[in-house]
Design a protein around this nucleic acid. Structure first.
Length: 473
RNA sequence: GCUCCCUUCGUCUAGCGGUUAGGACGCCGGCCUCUCACGCCGGUAACAGGGGUUCGAUCCCCCUAGGGAGCGCCA
C-alpha cells in the first residue's frame, strides 16, 4: 500500500484563516496517523494578490499550532516551466486548445445564458474551429472537457460523488500571459507531488469533477478526496471579520494557547465518541477522515474559551509566567518590587480564560491601584469597615513573617477581637488592595501584594472612607 | 436559474432499525465558601416537514422546505 501523502495548499493572500488552519490540521493529522508525508505548498499563481508577508503568516500560524511539514514550502510560482510543459503536452495531444474569444464576447455569452436561466458556460466556439486565431490576440488555453458521461470521485467524508460531464465546460487552464490557473496547477502539483489524499475545504467539491477530468487527461490515478465542511459564524453565515477574529494569529494575540486552539479546531467537525480533550498524541492516534462531519459547523467562542481555561489550568507554570511577563512588558508594567510572576500565575490560573484576562487580573500585584471599582468601593469601603481595617492594619504592621498562614491567623484574630466575620474584613481589604471585589483568597492575595504595599493600600482605603464620610456629612 | 452538497438540544456532537435520544459548551438552580474562580451535584433543551419501506424508523428511499457551494483569464 502506497504511503499516504497529504498537503496543505493555501494561497498567500492575507491572514491565515481559522478554516484554513483546521483543514491544515486535518491533513496533517491524517498524514501523521498513517505515518505518511505532509507537504506544504503555497499556491501563488495569482501574482496580483500573493505576498511574501502572507507566506510568513501562514508559516507562523502553522508553527504556532504545532504543525510541521516534511516537504516544502513549495511555491507554484517556481514551477511555471513545468506547467508550461504539461500545457504543451495537452495541446499536442489535442486535450486542450487555444481560445481567442475576447472578454467581451465571453461576457456577452454569459449574460445571454443567464437571461435564459441556463447555466453560464463557454460556448466552445474555439473548440473545433479550424483556424480560430486572430491577429494581435493572445489566446488562453482551455481544457477539452469530455462532452458526455459521468465523472465520479470518492470522497472520504461524503462518499461517492458523481456528476454529468455535460454540466461542465471547457475551463481556462492557462491565462493569456501563459500562467496556469488554479484548477490546472493543483492537478499538476498533486500529481507531481504524489499526493494520495486531497484534503481541503468543501468549497472545492464543485471543482473536483473538472480536476478529475484533468487527472484523467494526464493519465494519472485519481487521489482520494476529503472535503471538509466550512466553519461559519455564530449566525450560521460565512465566517467574516464581523464575527470577531478569523485569523489564527489574532487568537494568539488575545491570549489563547495553541493547544487549546488545536483541540477546539480538531473537535469542530470531527469527533471520537464523547471525548472532548485530546492531547496531540491522542489526536494523531484517533484521527480519521471518516469521522468528519458533513455539515458546516459554527465557531463557538465560549467553548474555545472553556478549552483555553482548561489548558491554562494544565499548563506548565513557568511557561505561563513567561507569557505573563512578556505581556506585562508590552504594557510597560514594571515587575520591580512585585511578587514572583510564577506565584501570581498559580494564584490566578484557574480564574482566567485567556492570557489577556490573566494579565488583566494580575495588574494590582505589580502596580498601584488606581481607581476603585465603583460598585466594590460603594459596597465595601464604608465607614463600618474603618475600625476593622485599622485593627487589622495594626496587626499586620507587627508581623515579621509575611506569609499566607500568618496573615490568615491575624485576620482571624482581628475578626474575633472585633466580634465580626471574616467577610466583613476580607472584602474591604480586597477592595483596598486590588480595587476590585474579586481576587484569589485574601491571605494569598495579601501575601503576594507584599506587606508594605498592603499597609499603604489600607491607609489609602482608610483615607478614602474618611473622605467619603466627610462628603456624606 | 442550473448543478452539487448539507440538515439531532442555542452551539459542538454521539447515535450507525428497537435507546427514558447520550456527552460537552452555554444557560438556570444547589453544594463548597472571605469575594471571584475551580470543583462537585442537579436541571433546561434536539431528531426541519411530508410521504413511503419495515413488525418497528433519528437511522434506508422519495419529495418539500431551509442553508451552503460552484457556474471567472480568483484560489
Amino acid at each position: 500500500m502506497a504511503a499516504v501523502r497529504t498537503r496543505f495548499a493555501p494561497s498567500p493572500t492575507g491572514y491565515l484563516h481559522i478554516g484554513g488552519m483546521r483543514t491544515a490540521l486535518f491533513a496533517w493529522l491524517y498524514a501523521r496517523h498513517h505515518g505518511g508525508v505532509f507537504v506544504l505548498r503555497i499556491e501563488d499563481t495569482d501574482r496580483e494578490r500573493s505576498t511574501q508577508a502572507s507566506v510568513e503568516v501562514i508559516m507562523q500560524g502553522m508553527s504556532w499550532i504545532g504543525l510541521d511539514y516534511d516537504e516544502g514550502p513549495l511555491f507554484q510560482s517556481d514551477r511555471i516551466d513545468r506547467y508550461r510543459e504539461v500545457l504543451d503536452q495537452l495541446l499536442e495531444q489535442g486535450l486542450a486548445y487555444r481560445c481567442y474569444c475576447s472578454q467581451e464576447e465571453l461576457d456577452a455569452v454569459r449574460e445571454e445564458q443567464r437571461a435564459q436561466n441556463i447555466k453560464p458556460r463557454y460556448n466552445r466556439k474555439c473548440r473545433d474551429a479550424k483556424n480560430p486565431s486572430r491577429p494581435g490576440v493572445e489566446p488562453v488555453i482551455r481544457f477539452r472537457n469530455p462532452l458526455e458521461g459521468p465523472v465520479v470521485f470518492e470522497d472520504l467524508v461524503r462518499g461517492r460523488i458523481s456528476i454529468s460531464n455535460d454540466e461542465l465546460d471547457d475551463l481556462v487552464i492557462a491565462r493569456a500571459d501563459g500562467t496556469p490557473t488554479y484548477n490546472f496547477a493543483v492537478v499538476v502539483d498533486d500529481i507531481d507531488m504524489g499526493i494520495t489524499h486531497v484534503i481541503r475545504g468543501d468549497d472545492h467539491v464543485n471543482n473536483t469533477p473538472r480536476q478529475a477530468n484533468i487527472f484523467k487527461a494526464l493519465d494519472a490515478p485519481l487521489p482520494v478526496f476529503a472535503h471538509v465542511p466550512m466553519i461559519v459564524g455564530a449566525d450560521g453565515q460565512r465566517l467574516s471579520k464581523r464575527h470577531g477574529a478569523v485569523s489564527v494569529m489574532e487568537y494568539r494575540d488575545q491570549g489563547f494557547l495553541p493547544e487549546a486552539m488545536r483541540n477546539y479546531l480538531v473537535r469542530l467537525g470531527w469527533s471520537h465518541g464523547d471525548q472532548e480533550i485530546f492531547s496531540l498524541e491522542e489526536m494523531i492516534e484517533f484521527f480519521d477522515l471518516s469521522r468528519v462531519n458533513r455539515a458546516a459547523s459554527a465557531f463557538d467562542q465560549d467553548k474555545l474559551r472553556w478549552l483555553n481555561q482548561h489548558y491554562i489550568k494544565e499548563a506548565d507554570g513557568e511557561r505561563l509566567a513567561l507569557l505573563l511577563c512578556q505581556r506585562l512588558r508590552e504594557l510597560e508594567v514594571s515587575l520591580e518590587g512585585g511578587p514572583q510572576p510564577a506565584a501570581v500565575v498559580e494564584a490566578l490560573r484557574e480564574r482566567a480564560q485567556t492570557l489577556d484576562e490573566l494579565v488583566g487580573k494580575s495588574l494590582y500585584f505589580f502596580q498601584d491601584v488606581g481607581e476603585y471599582d465603583e460598585g466594590a468601593a460603594k459596597k465595601h469601603l464604608r465607614p463600618a469597615a474603618g475600625p476593622l481595617l485599622e485593627d487589622v492594619r495594626e496587626r499586620f504592621a507587627g508581623v515579621d513573617q509575611w506569609a499566607p498562614e500568618v496573615i490568615h491567623a491575624q485576620l482571624h484574630a482581628c475578626v474575633e477581637a472585633q466580634g465580626s466575620k471574616l467577610g466583613k474584613v476580607a472584602q474591604p481589604l480586597r477592595v483596598a488592595v486590588s480595587g476590585t471585589a474579586a481576587t484569589p483568597p485574601i491571605d494569598e492575595t495579601l501575601a503576594l501584594v507584599g506587606k508594605q504595599r498592603t499597609l499603604q493600600r489600607i491607609d489609602a482605603a482608610l483615607a478614602f472612607i474618611a473622605a467619603r464620610a466627610g462628603q456624606d456629612a
